[in-house]
Computed example of a mutant assay.
Amino acid sequence: MTLSAVWADLDRLDDEMAELAGQAAELTSYAGRWVCQRAGFEPSPLCLLRPLAELMDLLADGFGDLRSLALDDWADLRHGVASTRRDLGAVDDGVVGLLPVAA
Rank of each mutant, 00 (worst) to 15 (best):
L59V: 07
L66C: 11
G32Q: 02
G94A: 03
R33K: 14
C47N: 15
L58N: 10
R67I: 00
Q23D: 08
R67G: 01
P43N: 02
M1K: 11
F63Q: 01
G22L: 09
D65N: 13
R50C: 05
W34Q: 12
S83H: 13
A103Q: 13
S68I: 10
R85I: 02
T84S: 09
E42N: 03
R33Q: 12
L13H: 00
Q37L: 12
V91R: 15
F41S: 01
L52N: 04
D61G: 11
V96H: 11
F63G: 00
G80A: 15
S68P: 05
T28N: 01
D73V: 05
Q37I: 07
G62K: 00
D76C: 09
L48S: 14
V6A: 10
G22K: 08
W7S: 09
A75G: 04
W74N: 01
R12N: 13
A53Q: 06
L49S: 14
A90Q: 01
F63H: 01
A31Y: 06
A25E: 04
V81T: 12
V95P: 06
D14N: 13
C47I: 07
V101H: 03
G94Q: 04
D57I: 10
A102P: 08
A31C: 13
A8I: 06
D11H: 04
A5S: 15
R85D: 02
D72K: 08
A75Y: 03
E26C: 04
G62D: 01
V96E: 15
A82M: 02
P45Y: 05
A102C: 11
R33H: 09
T84Y: 05
S68L: 12
A18Q: 07
S83W: 08
D87C: 09
L49E: 13
D9Y: 12
V101A: 00
D93P: 06
A82L: 01
Q37T: 13
G64C: 00
D87L: 12
L27E: 03
A75C: 04
G80C: 11
